[in-house]
Design a protein around this nucleic acid. Structure first.
Lengths: 266, 266
DNA sequence: CCGGGTTTTCCGTTGAACGGAAACGAAATC
DNA sequence: GATTTCGTTTCCGTTCAACGGAAAACCCGG
């Protein structure tokens, strides 16, 4: 068998770092608990190698083993990831505003950022009453069909937009826009209006209203959205509320020139 | 200089895995954004080595670099960590019950698990109105003075209890229990009663009521708590509600023998 | 233009990582 | 309870990726 080329994760398995990464990438929402040989098989790495690496990872709490002796992602990883500025860091400052927005709308409120050419969901507040959304924290989704994605894509560097619109646009419902030119025009509306509406692009019963969150130097660092059942409210009537919340977050992000950002001597 | 021994993170830096881990461990709530040489310095690794490792990590999205060229924890790590069964995985199933508990009490609701000899906070719902709590998601805290910790410690393997109670018990307020024997007796009450009350152990204005969350085989896998302002409500009056919520989570954890747990052929 | 810091490239040396092989263990299957 | 199967772990000789010192490139602020 050729050394790598397939497997599950990244491209280059030569370095230990690469191996570790592909090894960890074998875990997925569908497979959060794996045996040693499953990991080996799916990562395309030698069992022996995986055995050694995985051993070390367990020692450090990056992976965990239960009584069933199988492996899962450990708390240590969670603890480190909690420091990601664009992940939990962002969530931390955004949450109060998201809660307000939720109180006012009683609908799903979502926060997302762009990772490469997709949206990654960073936080969600889901009311019992609200429409079911199939978003998982830390999960990815194509940008064009989601409200969050439209906002992020509208403000992404043009190469990104180029790549995304060149690739075939996946259809989820009869309403999904699949013509790049149509999307392009929507995106320019988004830039003009300061918010995006994605109407039944992912499921036929839901639509979302999204607005950009700005960072210190005016770039869009995230997007905030409300997902609602189709036909419940006139979507554009929610736009001001969503924009307000998003601006609140933007301000909160910009304001704090806290000393914690500053490097201090030991 | 002796090869390792000091530095910031783990014990053994010989292996690449170890280096990577210590390197990442250099990031902390206080220092989420670092320069190359800071990382090198604080991890005790050679600049060259850090340079190479960090380069690879950035390539894979584990670390990120902004326009300021400094390094921070990246989204890729967040995405992987989102799969941790004891982290976001647990949170996912617990959240609805936590929300119910919050609706009923309008107080801070917290979820935590044990990592080695400390509590790690996995989720928190904080109302505007509720007492300020100084807990950070993914943050650690000693067990004895917190409600969550008392529950976790009460049901931890006896070696853990031994270790924790042998070590000096840190005092936070005049009320903090520092006598191991007193704590031992509290712990046995916790086991008997099925809930714990931590009265002004961390701050003089707050106390918490906590209950255990059980996993499939009857072990305690997490703890749930409500933090309230001292003097507001009779704490024991909340115990039933907290226990109910915790049991709800336990049931939800046990019930789903979903096919996603099962390994299926490719 | 100079001098501190940091970041990056270069490259010869070496030991950590590698992985085949085989022993070991656990749990179905007969 | 004997046999097969599948997963895990130990062992060990080979080799190449990782290492890190040195020096160049870069980036300020003075």
């Amino acid at each position: 068998m050729p050394p790598n080329k397939e497997g599950a994760g990244g491209r280059d398995d030569r370095s230990v770092t690469g191996k570790l990464f592909t090894l960890l990438s074998v875990f997925s929402p569908r497979r959060t608990v794996l045996t040693l040989s499953e990991i080996a098989h799916r990562s395309g790495l030698a069992v022996t190698t995986v055995h050694r690496l995985v051993g070390e990872l367990v020692e450090r709490g990056i992976l965990e083993r239960d009584s069933d002796r199988r492996y899962r992602i450990g708390l240590a990883l969670f603890e480190i990831a909690a420091l990601a500025p664009r992940g939990p860091g962002l969530r931390e400052v955004a949450l109060p505003y998201m809660e307000d927005l939720y109180e006012v709308t009683r609908e799903n409120v979502q926060l997302g950022v762009r990772a490469e050419d997709e949206v990654v969901f960073v936080e969600r507040i889901a009311g019992r009453a609200s429409v079911g959304v199939r978003t998982r924290l830390g999960g990815r989704f194509p940008m064009p069909p989601t409200g969050l994605g439209l906002v992020l894509l509208a403000h992404a560097p043009s190469e990104v937009r180029q790549r995304v619109l060149e690739a075939p646009l996946r259809r989820f419902t009869p309403h999904t826009l699949t013509d790049p030119e149509r999307v392009r025009s929507v995106l320019s509306d988004v830039r003009r209006d300061g918010f995006a509406i994605s109407d039944r692009q992912v499921t036929s019963d839901a639509l979302s209203v999204a607005a950009p969150v700005f960072g210190g130097s005016g770039e869009v660092v995230a997007a905030l959205s409300v997902v609602l059942r189709f036909g419940s409210v006139r979507p554009s009537s929610l736009a001001p509320a969503v924009r307000m919340a998003a601006r609140g977050i933007s301000r909160a992000l910009t304001a704090p020139v806290t000393s914690s950002e500053t490097t201090r001597p030991d």
